[in-house]
């Protein structure tokens, strides 16, 4: 069951081609009012509705970045599929990475409803003109990382993404509902792997702790810079694309995760982490924002490797895509 707000907008909509000729950014009279009213009501904007150019551009940027993150995100865990230590774990991991490819597909499709093709978006990614989540510029160095990525990275992603199920753009919100459900399986699978390893040998417990130590701070950075330093946040909030501030989501993640770490039996590498009875929340330390900025600039441990891998796969596959096109064309000519 998808919980999607009913679309209550009047039928008075207009193809965007006609609208964009009239004006580049300013909302033309009624159309602009309808857009604002729809967003204010918390209802969905649909592909054929009029929307401001900047709204469209913001969505394309955000959805594309999300799609690229799913596809680039296949790499760190994918690197462990051939070494998964049990057949059950191999099946779970392969199915998970396969799901990420599927998420990439839904999101590229959502982007296509805004008039940008997957091919164009891939070209922008490979040219470094569109980003993906910085977390995937960190390496996966042990099998415990498969669990930690599920627990912390997918957990942080879920905190970010659950509010997006209500985002103002219909196709994005509906894709997010499906993605969030699958992500939450992944998160549980990751946590269950860590739980199992913690019941194993001392070496395995040490492996889990080392992995959590490495991923804790980068996971907190996944929520983006503090609200005060987040240039695009305010407008995205006003348009209902984004629904919560970075700091609020980060706090929510910490509050949910600390009891899970305790249940797991691992420590979190933050000396400032403590319960604040007054706020009924955990206080926690400040991530190293200079590291965040460096990774964003391309100076993370794996930035070049991740992009090169994607570029190679894309180039190596060009002859197959060309063949499929040629075959389809020849078939169409026969009919």
């Amino acid at each position: 069951m998808e919980a999607v707000p009913e679309k209550t907008m009047p039928e008075k909509t207009m193809p965007r081609e006609a609208a964009s000729e009239e004006t580049a950014t300013a909302a033309p009279g009624d159309l602009g009012e309808h857009f604002e009213a729809t967003v204010a009501r918390g209802a969905r904007i649909e592909p054929r509705d009029w929307m401001p150019d900047a709204y469209r551009a913001t969505l394309v940027r955000q959805i594309a970045q999300h799609a690229h993150s799913e596809v680039i995100g296949m790499q760190p865990e994918g690197n462990w599929i051939t070494r998964a230590p049990s057949l059950r774990r191999k099946a779970i991991l392969l199915a998970k990475v396969q799901d990420e490819a599927g998420h990439g597909l839904y999101l590229y499709s959502a982007c296509e409803t805004l008039g940008v093709s997957r091919e164009e978006l891939t070209a922008l990614l490979l040219a470094g003109r569109q980003k993906y989540s910085s977390i995937f510029n960190y390496p996966a160095l042990s099998y415990a990382d498969v669990g930690t990525i599920g627990w912390l990275v997918d957990g942080a992603a879920i905190c970010n993404q659950v509010p997006l199920c209500r985002t103002s753009y219909g196709p994005y919100g509906r894709a997010m509902i499906r993605i969030c459900k699958e992500e939450s399986f992944h998160q549980r699978q990751g946590y269950e792997l860590l739980m199992t390893m913690m019941r194993g040998t001392g070496e395995q417990r040490a492996m889990v702790q080392e992995s959590v130590d490495r991923f804790w701070w980068p996971s907190l950075m996944m929520f983006g810079p503090p609200d005060a330093d987040s240039p695009n946040s305010a407008r995205s909030m006003a348009w209902g694309i984004k629904r919560n501030g970075n700091d609020e989501l980060r706090q929510r993640f910490v509050d949910m995760t600390v009891p899970q770490a305790e249940a797991l039996g691992v420590s979190l590498p933050d000396p400032d982490l403590r319960w604040n009875a007054e706020r009924e929340s955990y206080d926690f330390g400040e991530p190293d924002w200079s590291e965040f900025a460096a990774v964003l600039r391309g100076e993370g441990p794996c930035n070049a490797q991740r992009l090169a891998h994607r570029a190679r796969a894309h180039e190596d596959g060009a002859w197959v895509r060309n063949a499929a096109l040629a075959f389809a064309k020849a078939g169409a000519a026969h009919e």
Binding site: I81, T82, K90, A91, L94, Q98, G317, A318
Partner: peptide, 26 residues
């Protein structure tokens, strides 16, 4: 076939090859 994961010519093919690998693993 699992070695193709993340390397296939197109996302749809990545998914299809993983499907076959999962069936055989089962």
């Amino acid at each position: 076939l699992s070695q193709w994961c993340g390397r296939a010519p197109e996302l749809e093919l990545d998914i299809a090859l993983a499907n076959i690998a999962l069936d055989l693993l089962g």
